[in-house]
């Protein structure tokens, strides 16, 4: 049994994840009447927020912070690589 995060840390993380979800929805400008492409900074914010949410979920909900550095690196690496590839595809579509 590994050392668990504790209810307080879990609740703080949950609140953070809720706020970050609202931030990503706001930065995607869902209130717009027209469906225009997002400004690049908005799209970047959506992706950065997504990455941070994934990192929090891995470290606290999945409790990987108690695991070895290799596993932490592997999971964060997979998520980072996924987001980098998504960003590259998105940028390519925007700039070409």
């Amino acid at each position: 049994m590994t050392l668990l995060p504790g209810q307080r840390r879990l609740l703080i993380t949950w609140a953070m994840l809720m706020v970050l979800t609202l931030v990503s929805m706001a930065s995607a400008r869902l209130d717009q009447t027209s469906w225009e492409a997002l400004p690049l900074w908005s799209a970047a914010l959506v992706l950065v927020v997504t990455g941070f949410k994934a990192q929090r979920l891995l470290m606290v909900y999945l409790n990987l912070r108690q695991s070895s550095g290799a596993w932490k690196g592997a999971f964060v690496g997979i998520i980072t690589l996924t987001l980098v590839l998504i960003s590259a595809g998105y940028l390519y579509a925007r700039l070409m």
């Binding site: 995607a28 997002l38 799209a43 959506v46 909900y61 998520i79 987001l83």
Partner: peptide
């Protein structure tokens, strides 16, 4: 719990990709 959090994690990535990025 590990499996359920993985389901959570995938949705975190899926949501902006399908619904938000444009």
């Amino acid at each position: 719990a590990a499996f359920w959090h993985m389901v959570d994690l995938i949705w975190i990535l899926l949501y902006p990709l399908l619904y938000l990025l444009r």
